[in-house]
């Protein structure tokens, strides 16, 4: 599983790095960024889904 952020949509709400700090981080301006190229380690799939489902801007995509 892989996660990515559409930076044209991200507005820095920060829900992804609040809910899934193992997969997402903030940049210097508070926009989201994926950790480790977006690879979701085994066991972190629920966090990926939580982040995707809570992004107010629909900026997160999960690829199986």
């Amino acid at each position: 599983m892989k996660v990515s952020i559409d930076m044209s949509r991200c507005q820095g709400h920060g829900r992804c790095y609040d809910l899934a700090p193992d997969l997402f981080d903030e940049d210097d301006e508070g926009y989201g960024q994926v950790r480790g190229g977006g690879e979701v380690p085994a066991g972190s799939e629920p966090n990926a889904q939580l982040a995707e489902a809570n992004c107010p801007e629909h900026a997160i995509t999960i690829e199986a």
Partner: peptide, 23 residues
């Protein structure tokens, strides 16, 4: 509530600048 895509801090380019402070 686990899925909560609310708009309390607005949406788009004017997303509340102070949202992290408020939270």
């Amino acid at each position: 509530r686990e899925v909560n895509r609310h708009a309390a801090f607005g949406l788009g380019i004017h997303r509340c600048l102070g949202s992290h402070l408020a939270r």
